[in-house]
Simulated assay, not measured.
Amino acid sequence: MKISIVGATGYTGAELLRILASHPAAEIQYITSESQPGTAIADIYPHLTRFYTQKLTNLASLEKIAADSDVIFIGLPHGHAMEVGRKATAINANIKIIDLGADYRFKNHDTYEQWYKVPHTHRNANAVYGLTELNRSQIREAAIVGNPGCYTTASILALAPLVKNKLVDLTTIIVDAKSGVSGAGRGLNLGSHFTEVFESVKAYNVGGHRHTPEIEEVLGRLAGEDIILSFTPHLIPMARGILSTCYANLKAGVTAEQVDAAYVSLYGKEYFIRLLGRGGCPATKNTRGSNFCDLGWHIDKRTGRVVAIAAIDNLVKGAAGQAIQNMNVLFNIDERTGLDYAPVYP
């Protein structure tokens, strides 16, 4: 597969290149950067030395990039990917687009515009939400995949069995999630400086994080009705990882065995979902550098709540790894290809 990466100098772009270096069917055609064209990618990311000799180009060559590629990964800020996708699909009708930003994640474009404050300019795109375990059959036929957000991936995977099987009161869902600092991107930002985050944990964007409507829309489709939930993200002093702890009130009469069965039914055959079972406590260290999502759940009999916990690597299952998993599905190859390796530990 001839692959190009538009916006290759962020952490997600670098992670795509790291994983694709060992993908047997991947051939990198072009990598782009608007800020550093002409620079060798290994000069920016020395860990890629001996794996890539390519120099960065820019989007002035988009026509050639689209014509020469089977798939384009887009790692641009929101508002930019839809224009690249619109132009690239017009140039090459057979090309596949996988956007790691937010532009193609929403079925309801009005919701996107409300939360992201930019007009959606590619509303007629044949785009599918790229949470592979839930939308595999639709992804296989898609032209454009909107790769989910990192918080979103962990939270939806944790809650989907409960929502799909109508085991919980949908008005009581609370998501408490924590992310490593790489989720803030590579750009300079006072809030992610070492001295600001070391030995500290803080909540941010309380009640207003842009992943909230994404979680609500996907879970709402599973439930068959609109969902409004509380989502609070936290920044924790580590480079990688997301831990999402999700709470909901069980409906009257729902048993622990029904909850167990819901998780096994939905994920029992999913390679990248590792079920730790009732009482399991996922840890981010156990998924570091991998495409795995570890899931555990608890029944709090005293309060009548279920507590579902998911751990992922935000740059892999929460971004680049899931994008490659989706690429494998799009091209009808084993979706474990290039991703079937153990997490880094300790």
Rank of each mutant, 00 (worst) to 15 (best):
P119R: 07
Y345D: 10
I309M: 10
G75Y: 09
P237S: 02
A67S: 13
F292T: 06
V128E: 03
H234A: 01
L235A: 06
K251M: 06
K166A: 13
I41W: 02
Y112M: 12
A60I: 14
T255R: 02
E133W: 05
N249H: 13
Y30D: 10
Y30K: 07
M82S: 07
P46H: 07
R18M: 11
L17M: 14
I273F: 11
Y45P: 03
A203K: 11
S230M: 04
I324H: 13
D226Q: 09
A320N: 15
P233Y: 00
L219Y: 01
T121G: 04
L275E: 11
K107P: 00
I242L: 06
I312D: 05
A60E: 07
E199P: 00
G224I: 07
Y11W: 05
N147M: 10
L266P: 04
R18A: 13
D43P: 09
K269Q: 15
N189C: 12
I74Q: 07
L20I: 01
K96Q: 10
P282T: 02
T245K: 11
I19F: 11
M1Y: 10
L315R: 09
G241V: 00
A239M: 08
R50H: 15
D300W: 01
A25I: 08
V84Q: 00
M238A: 04
Q114M: 15
A283Q: 15
D260Y: 02
K202N: 10
V181T: 03
Y267P: 09
K55W: 00
S4D: 02
D313F: 07
L250F: 05
G321W: 08
Y247M: 09
F331A: 13
S61C: 05
E141F: 07
L330G: 14
E217Y: 01
A102G: 01
